[in-house]
Design a protein around this nucleic acid. Structure first.
Lengths: 161, 161
DNA sequence: TTGCAAAGTTAGGCGAACCTAATTATCTTA
DNA sequence: TAAGATAATTAGGTTCGCCTAACTTTGCAA
């Protein structure tokens, strides 16, 4: 009846991801850093850390440093890879503004199943291999987008600038 | 200070979408139908309908039928198109199980920006046009997936069946 | 070494979104 | 047309995730 196997909410996934990311750049993840990274109040972090500790995803003692358990690092890694795959797809394939891509990836990473995540990674790999074979799909798509813009020139409603 | 322009939560978007979908199949969307469609208790529907009415997205009177306003239909349409684009991408391009694709689309539709949504639709269009020109990218990807499966045959950890 | 600033936690409260149970309204049909 | 069935709403409660304010702990500097 413990929380050990209960799956994480989107919010807790964000905390776990933040700890992972911060652990990589600086050496330890402090509450303050996590709070800043996620733009929440420090007291919200405390609550989240307790939840993650109950699930044995982090080592946590009040007033102490936060580190990931093996389990936690594994799970955080999955989330980060998911995020990166989505961000890369939005930005590099769809050609969306990097900042927008980052923000949407942050939300969508909690929404897609693991089956979709792994397929997406494979798809990105596939497009890379295609490029090496001289078929640059993203580039062709860029061209298609430009064409479409031109084709729809006259059909736009007039802008108010 | 009204809610008119406040943007919808994921949950309210789901209700709006359900009303739209139900209005298309049967003629009117009853509370009961919405509740069944979204798998929530009828009393939850009542609360949501009040919120949507405050935002002038539906016509709602207690015990009466629910219909979309023009504004509501417009917004619901955007959500549905988003959903369809995601579902199609997951299923037709990535080759994921239709049921899984449907479920993830339902969640991800609330996560992606409108810029990404329109780009994704354009990308699907692009792949169709490519197919007509004899370049079937999804099919090539399928082949790539099969290859990868074969290549990684020996590197799998043994299954316990 | 003490004493203050910074960091972290606890306490208490709020809104969103759901639930169950009880009540009210509407519909149907005998 | 009146009663019972069905649908919808209200009332009240739970959980989650956040907040502010007050407090405690820690660490650094004089």
């Amino acid at each position: 009846m413990s929380l050990y196997n209960k799956q994480l909410s989107a919010s807790l996934e964000d905390y776990l991801e933040a700890i992972f990311v911060l652990s990589q750049t600086g050496r330890v993840a402090r509450s303050k850093d996590i709070a800043e990274h996620l733009q929440v109040a420090p007291s919200s972090v405390t609550g989240a850390l307790k939840m993650l500790a109950e699930r044995q995803l982090i080592h946590y003692k009040p007033y102490g440093y936060v580190t990931l358990t093996d389990r936690g690092r594994q799970m955080a890694g999955r989330i980060v890879r998911r995020h990166e795959a989505l961000e890369s797809f939005f930005c590099d394939i769809l050609g969306v503004d990097p900042d927008v891509a980052q923000r949407s990836a942050c939300l969508a990473e909690h929404a897609i199943s693991s089956e979709i995540a792994s397929r997406l990674m494979l798809y990105l790999e596939f497009l890379s291999s295609e490029k090496q074979s001289g078929r640059d799909v993203p580039r062709a798509f860029q061209g298609y987008c430009r064409q479409t813009e031109i084709r729809s020139q006259g059909t736009q409603k007039p802008s108010h600038t």
